[in-house]
């Protein structure tokens, strides 16, 4: 009984480590593979469109709503202390440091990550990847690498857009609706937000999240069992694993950046 459990633990560990190893190898192949600018660049642009531009709408809408909610919630608390002038920094700092990068990464995992897993899983199921290999074209370079880099480029851009829209959303509710002074909204924000400490750290966070989400999404797709159940399972796993990984990495990064 106990030995059985132990054995299962061992088997799971080996499986996990092997999976991580495969993911790392794949990532290495995709990232450090010799890039071919002439053929690679159009592919990158196409993927930037699929991964980045098509995610823009959901990012803008969510950013606006989250900023508005922050403005409303922050106001009701701050007004009790007569400190509604601090609404600007509250909205800006929560978005810049946490919500911008994290929520963008979660939405990105749900929208682009799952789509990538399904797409690559389907390519595998319909033998497109195999046939590319047989045509002596490396699928890591041709399929994985452009998607990976498009994700890594898109995510910080989307996070920045999300944050900016969120701050405007907070302005919309706090200033235009609830009557916080516009001048103090912006000036208190400027007094409390630091370009390096807050803005750049937020962007660094979102670059790290991009690596994590893309690595998970592409690996799950590439490793998917090429059947319809296998792809469905891989897609779900992408969203779950990527979201958890983002939250875990967020804690580590927050501790490193703001904890000390």
């Amino acid at each position: 009984m106990f030995v059985d459990r132990l054995q299962r633990l061992g088997a799971n560990t080996i499986q996990t480590v092997a999976g991580l190893g495969r993911a790392t190898l794949m990532l290495m192949g995709a990232v450090f593979g010799k890039p071919d600018v002439r053929k690679g660049f159009p592919l990158l642009i196409k993927q930037l469109y699929v991964v980045g531009v098509l995610s823009l709408l959901i990012i803008v809408v969510s950013g606006l709503f989250i900023g508005m909610v922050l403005g409303l919630q922050g106001y009701t608390v701050l007004v009790k202390f007569g400190a509604e002038g601090m609404l600007g920094p509250l909205v800006a700092l929560s978005l810049l440091r946490e919500l911008g990068p994290v929520v963008t990464a979660l939405l990105f995992a749900g929208r682009a990550g799952s789509a990538l897993t399904a797409e690559i899983g389907l390519m595998k199921a319909t033998e497109q990847i195999s046939s590319m290999e047989m045509m002596a074209v490396d699928p890591l370079r041709r399929i994985i690498a452009p998607r990976f880099w498009a994700g890594v480029i898109s995510m910080p851009l989307l996070a920045v857009v999300f944050t900016a829209v969120g701050i405007l959303g907070g302005h919309l509710v706090g200033v235009d609706w609830l009557g916080v002074d516009a001048g103090s909204y912006w000036s208190a924000m400027q007094a409390n937000v630091d370009l390096y400490q807050d803005v750049f750290n937020g962007i660094i966070k979102s670059i790290v999240f991009a690596f994590v989400v893309m690595a998970i999404a592409l690996h799950k797709g590439f490793d998917a069992v090429p059947t319809s159940e296998g792809i469905a399972k891989a897609t779900t796993e992408t969203v779950v694993t990527a979201s958890l990984a983002v939250l875990a990495f967020d804690f580590v990064l927050t501790a490193l950046m703001f904890g000390g």
């Binding site: 053929k39 389907l122 390519m123 497109q128 046939s131 045509m135 002596a136 074209v137």
Partner: peptide, 27 residues
């Protein structure tokens, strides 16, 4: 060498023309 897969395995994101042109363009 070259292989014809059971499903055809055409790249679903490209037209027939681009599919046939793919190996030529790559190599």
């Amino acid at each position: 060498m070259s292989m014809l897969f059971q499903s055809g395995a055409l790249f679903s994101e490209m037209t027939v023309f681009d599919n046939v042109a793919f190996p030529i363009r790559e190599h």
